[in-house]
């Protein structure tokens, strides 16, 4: 008798709505995931200034992200690059190859189409930062973006 009752009263929950909701959540997380954030060293404390504008490259520019900590170390994807000059030279060569794809007559020493994004700690002395800037300029980089935290309004 009891077996009959239990088989009759078996409840099967409708899993379709919960599955729909979980798929929507997965879609949200897949859309907001940013692989660019791996290039950002989040330990750095950026300076706070008023005229910092939101990033807008309109998807046209190639970016070279350089993190410079308070001791002047160049940190790329979490790894400290000991030979700054060599690393930037290699990146400049890659950028030149990219420039040659769109403009065949591009040669070493020409302005590179890459924007150098400098993320430096607010305590970095200028002499250590300038070392990085000068090497970039020597290798043909002209467009720079200095990262900062926008001053809160209101």
């Amino acid at each position: 008798m009891s077996a009959i009752l239990s088989s009759d009263a078996r409840v099967e929950p409708n899993l379709t709505p919960i599955l729909d909701m979980v798929f929507q959540l997965i879609t949200f997380f897949m859309l907001v995931v940013s692989f660019k954030s791996a290039a950002i060293d989040q330990r750095l404390r950026l300076p706070v200034i008023g005229s910092a504008r939101p990033v807008d490259t309109r998807g046209t520019d190639d970016l070279l992200v350089l993190n410079v900590d308070a001791d002047g170390n160049l940190v790329i994807y979490g790894e400290v690059k000991r030979d700054i000059r060599r690393y930037i030279q290699q990146e400049a060569q890659a950028s030149l190859l990219l420039a040659k794809q769109s403009r065949r007559e591009a040669q070493a020493g020409d302005e590179l189409p890459t924007t150098v994004v400098i993320r430096a700690d607010c305590d970095t002395p200028f002499t250590l930062l300038n070392r990085v800037l000068v090497v970039c300029q020597e290798n043909g980089y002209r467009k720079f973006a200095l990262k900062a935290t926008p001053k809160p309004t209101g």
Partner: peptide, 28 residues
């Protein structure tokens, strides 16, 4: 549903919102 929850757990655990940053564009 099990598989979907596992995927969801992965995305929640690895989610790191990027900080709000601005920039000053310069020609040097």
């Amino acid at each position: 549903l099990d598989m979907a929850f596992q995927l969801l757990a992965f995305f929640i655990l690895t989610f790191k919102p990027s900080p709000i940053e601005g920039q000053v564009n310069l020609r040097l």
